[in-house]
Design a protein around this nucleic acid. Sequence first.
DNA 1: AAGACAGTGGTGGTCTGACCACCAAAAAAT
DNA 2: ATTTTTTGGTGGTCAGACCACCACTGTCTT
Lengths: 224, 224
Amino acid sequence: MEIQKAPSKMYLDIVHELRDIIKNEGIKTGGKLPSERVLAERLQVGRSTVREALRSLELLGLIETKRGEGTFLADFQKHQFVEVLADFIMQQPESVDDVNETRRIHEISAIKAISRNSSLRTLPVWESLLAKIEHNGEILREDLIREMIIATENRLSLKIWFLLKQYSMVRFDAMTHGVENSLVKDMLQAVRSGNEIAALAAYKKWIDVVERERREKSNDSRHF
Amino acid sequence: MEIQKAPSKMYLDIVHELRDIIKNEGIKTGGKLPSERVLAERLQVGRSTVREALRSLELLGLIETKRGEGTFLADFQKHQFVEVLADFIMQQPESVDDVNETRRIHEISAIKAISRNSSLRTLPVWESLLAKIEHNGEILREDLIREMIIATENRLSLKIWFLLKQYSMVRFDAMTHGVENSLVKDMLQAVRSGNEIAALAAYKKWIDVVERERREKSNDSRHF
DNA sequence: AAGACAGTGGTGGTCTGACCACCAAAAAAT
DNA sequence: ATTTTTTGGTGGTCAGACCACCACTGTCTT
């Protein structure tokens, strides 16, 4: 028997002990953690307590569990916690504008970063994107933006942007349409030549077009 | 009996259902959630499953539990997860740069938004901040930035920034120090007069100072 | 009547043991 | 050698029990 007392948040202690275990055993990213039953035995607590700690860490994106296999140290770059936060934060409908605005913050930042950095703006990916426009005639808005944020190599920013984008898509299923070639080309060219001002101007025009379309669409079929 | 199947991450579904409950019942900050046993009955799952979801949300700082009383919607302050994250991420130092970079994206965006908007840059709060600098002689970096992001009225950006800020604070406990008056004043004045370029320049100088201090600090006491 | 006290019901915290679904590797059958 | 079956281990879930704690209530003392 011997039910453990709970002076304060036992599962939090487990979290810390897990950190120590990971550290001492030298478990690397993708490595396997001891099983829940082993941990319970080793830390002298019930399996459910161990699980509460593990689930918390999983929601934070620090570990990954696979049924039938085990628990693994996750690639920290996943930042899964952002999703849950977003879920809770976005309960208020008035925050839709905030979502779009925040998404643009990240988009603009990427455009600026690339325009200013000569090694970024000469990346071959821009050439191939331009070529694709010439061939197919159109390109998806988010594909282009995504490539840009990827180029900045800020994976957290990319993650946040991706989530905000998804949320926008659910709210109003626009955004997946193609865009005017001229605007895209203007922007890409400006970015490539390091003309930050022109790139941002083209971006703003682009946004305006999207916004106008969205408004018209929501007028056509207003569900509210 | 009738043990539930687990197509995928049952406790994650609970997290979502909890969000709906909070939404539909109109539970406000500090409000009380249904008890674990009631939730289990209502959602037709075991109590332990409910608890796994609750513990996850607690680590994220979204709810607060008091033994003998109940579970409450937290007033977003605790955010215990930040320390846990920092603890774990020490081993993957490259993601720290992403966090700092992303935080700056939001800070710069706020500075620009305020500089460009005449009704924002003439807010009385800037006057009182300047006055406070004259009196006390110093001001906390994050207080100023926070006021700026608040002024933009983008609550999502504020939320994200707040989280990233805490994250940085745990990682290297600098950042809470006061800053040079001249730089702060330069920036505030530039913002007030709508001089975006100057404001950003002052901001950049500021960042450089902080960065240099941080580097020196980590050189003084290198634990590695 | 006012305050101190013990009881009571509800809540979170934990443990146990059981069963299910799943997976990978070993063992058996072909 | 290849395919199939078995088996052991793993996470996922459940039910019921007990503990520690807290707010409330009704009683008892003064």
